[in-house]
Amino acid sequence: MKKLTALTALTLAVLSGLAHADRLDDIKKSGVLRVASFDSNPPFGFVDAKSKQIEGLDVDYAKAIADKLGVKLQLQPTNPANRVPLLVANKVDLVLANFTITPERAEQVNFSIPYFASGQQFIVKKGTLKSEADLNTWRVGVDKGTVNEGVLREKFPGAKVVAYDDTPFAFTALRNGNVQAITQDGPKLIGLLANVPDKDKYEVPPFTISNDLIGVGIPKGEARLTDVVNETLTELEADGKAQGIYDAWFGPTTKTPLTRLYKIGDKS
């Protein structure tokens, strides 16, 4: 009897899974696309001080996907740890929250093609870095105990690595001339530079030495929904809207200008 119950439960679970297997139809029927995104991680997703709404780069992409499906967008704030559970528990249809594509996550959720890449970059004094290879002989500051330190040693074995307790210390060392460059994730470096009084003296050279690809998180096995999201992203790049979204948050006129190095569809 016990066995039978277990079997029934299993069958029901499988059947209910199948019944829900087409999320795309559900979304269209209900007319609402539920998307999880950050509400305190500018410029990816944050509550805008004026409009009191969640806005940001991730949100713009979510809007574009909702438009493509012809449905309303409903945003659900999340933190990093909840992104996978929200998808697995069917609480949301998509996650657009600076969601880095990793093999471990890909076992639990589907990922779209990447729509953004954040990579390890450098800040140097303007005009000092003539070529990437120069870094091999330079003194370069990093944050102690970060992945960045390992990547730097691997890519530039000749560089003299000086590790500091945090990024502001490393930046002070760069200002003083104790190191000639410091390295961190590009968006973080830009965020740091935004608050520096003499930021005109520094630049972030337009190359990365590692890439974290950011994709849309989709419930596992939703092939049709994944296709639609991929299609939408490819279209956005083709008609220039993706560039427009990027420029709105990282363009030359924003507080955090960062050269766009990755385009949707690029091989990394």
Partner: peptide
């Protein structure tokens, strides 16, 4: 390390 070097001339650093 941080304080004094900020005052020193750039060439010396």
């Amino acid at each position: 390390y941080f304080g004094v070097t900020a005052l020193l001339p750039e060439a010396l650093v």
